[in-house]
Write a protein that binds this DNA or RNA. Structure first.
Lengths: 338, 338
DNA sequence: GGCCTCCCCGAAATGGTTTGCAATAATCTT
DNA sequence: AAGATTATTGCAAACCATTTCGGGGAGGCC
């Protein structure tokens, strides 16, 4: 049916070997021959068979990325960063959504051991995934943001303690001292670290951390809503709250509005990650920026380095975060402080 | 290095053929033999080589989906629907983000002609993509939402005229008659149809369509902002606006707030698509729901049917849409109507 | 007991490409 | 002009699993 390399070879009156070289390693073949082969290939509409090629060269030039559901605006930027870097180096990316079940995750990870992909980016570490399924760290793997496999497996991430620190310092510098924290999913390592970071940063700023001002925003959007409601029903409510991510902060902001509180006049809100929902909220959310595209690109480059056996693959890369002041934080007003 | 099937065969003292059958077609082999082979495979950690398998059976069980950038919360649900259906039928999905350049799109589409994927889902038809690059409609292809290839290539979509009709009828039933429309990107066929649908629906409702009440929201978020500002600066501003999608509606809502207008008391807003940003807006956005997951799943099933040569593949599948009343539309107040 | 059938298994061919090695032709060196 | 390189090309193996075809053995039936 489809023309194969040997068809081309016959048409050009050369051997398959020469035809192969003429097409994929042009320097090794004489000028006239090359042209003849090219012509023959065009005339019969020859397309290389990548599967056969992969079998022969033992490489697929494909990366697998394990990602949780991507409804939340956080992962797309990571994916784009990955894809961008991968494409530049001649790789294509296969994505596997793993939130559905451990079984699916396993079967995706199997693609790695089964030779269909050359390496794997684990991006679903924050989704409470079973850390014992799937990846075989003996095969090229790099983790993104959440470390769920032990050190020989590299990770590229941000310093979540710093994320919390930036947020707390900003709030504190505005005069706030009754600062609350809405924590992210308990299953996510980074959420835990942000929580711990919050406690540490409060300490460093000489502020008291009150146990009931730290609530769990577990349960996604609904969880965020409930967390904020709990906070606002406290006898002494906080004057500022650091939310573990922008979605949580948006939820918190909605609760404020439904209770007639103005942001930032009556209460300051700060998020983290700098996702689109925060940027487009009203007022736009102050947040700490996490360079997602960079993280993705870095991880992809690292993985490809690993695959190609390049030495010097750092096993823990941490990228810088920074505060993005927008419009949801204001200085503490004397009236409220009282 | 890695154990191959012949290693397993040797360990189990059978031939490769028997080993193959025992593993992938267990019924064809005797009980004891099957067990022996399984044991041998386990003991040496054998993993099937999917590339070799694909080469032999001339099938990759992989679907390619061409998608634009997915920052906007619209595509993820489609992707999930696709992936869900694909996984159920034993397929994995490869995603290619095509917004970057035509070159990239071409190289993704090449995967199809080069045998790396069995079929292709074209989801980027609304992104102003060059409709002449890429897909060879003679290879299994189905388009999602926007038709950019001629009829032999199936499409699964919604009726965008109906989307507009639902929106206009709802607004009209609330007493509005000065209704504006913010149109989506001119490059997207469905945005055009929604615009045309708006005109038709207004006519059917006996309402006048004023030319200056139809503005272009081209240019993404910023475009939406500008469009709404233009609308609000009109001498006779609309009492309701139908936005081509929820993101545009959210932008419009932000403009309203910045100008001190209350939604829905002062102006009614309705979106389309029913994406997360609308659901989480404050107040939650009234919209017309587009069953994205269903669309994705339907398209995937259709494509797989095509690949497997099943007859009766409908070439135009349209799924139903429905109004989702939330909180951004209110009856026209007499005062404003005056 | 002979013959037929059925089931199970093994040898070999298949898929399309790349590549190490060898051979031939052509160019260069002295 | 003869020997030494170099430039091109061809042959055949290798990559690894699947599948077809046919042989051999066991059991059933008459």
């Amino acid at each position: 049916m489809r023309p194969t390399l040997s068809d081309v070879a016959r048409l050009a009156s050369v051997s398959v070997a020469t035809a192969s070289r003429a097409l994929s390693n042009p320097d090794l073949v004489a000028d006239g021959t090359r042209r003849a082969v090219r012509e023959a290939a065009n005339s019969c509409g020859y397309k290389i068979n990548l599967v056969a090629r992969s079998l022969r060269i033992q490489r697929t030039d494909t990366l697998l990325v394990l990602t949780p559901e991507i409804d939340n605006g956080f992962y797309p930027a990571l994916l784009h960063g990955i894809e961008d870097a991968a494409l530049d180096l001649g790789y294509t990316v296969l994505v596997g959504f793993t939130a559905k079940s451990e079984k699916h995750r396993q079967s995706y990870a199997d693609l790695l051991s089964n030779g269909r992909v050359d390496g794997m980016l684990v991006m679903d570490g924050g989704s409470g995934v079973n850390r014992f399924t799937g990846p075989r760290p003996d095969l090229p793997t790099v983790q993104v943001l959440d470390r769920i496999y032990a050190p020989p497996v590299p990770v590229v991430r941000v310093d979540d303690g710093e994320v919390a620190d930036l947020a707390v310092r900003h709030l504190s510098s505005l005069g706030h001292h009754r600062i609350a924290h809405i924590a992210g999913s308990a299953a996510a390592p980074h959420a835990l670290e942000r929580r711990n970071g919050f406690v540490a940063a409060m300490g460093r700023s000489g502020l008291p951390v009150e146990e009931h001002l730290m609530v769990s925003g577990d349960g996604g959007w609904e969880g965020g809503l409930q967390a904020m409601r709990r906070l606002l029903s406290l006898p002494q409510r906080p004057t500022a709250v650091f939310c573990a991510d922008d979605a949580l902060a948006c939820a918190a902001m909605n609760v404020c509005r439904e209770q007639g509180l103005r942001v930032p006049e009556d209460i300051s809100l700060i998020g983290a990650n700098d996702t689109q929902d925060g940027q487009r909220a009203y007022p736009p959310l102050t947040t700490v920026h996490v360079p997602r595209a960079d993280i993705g690109a870095t991880a992809a480059n690292l993985l490809i380095g690993l695959i190609r056996g390049q030495p010097g693959a750092e096993s823990d890369t941490v990228l810088p975060v920074e505060l993005r002041e927008r419009a949801t934080c204001a200085p503490l007003r004397a009236a409220v402080a009282a």
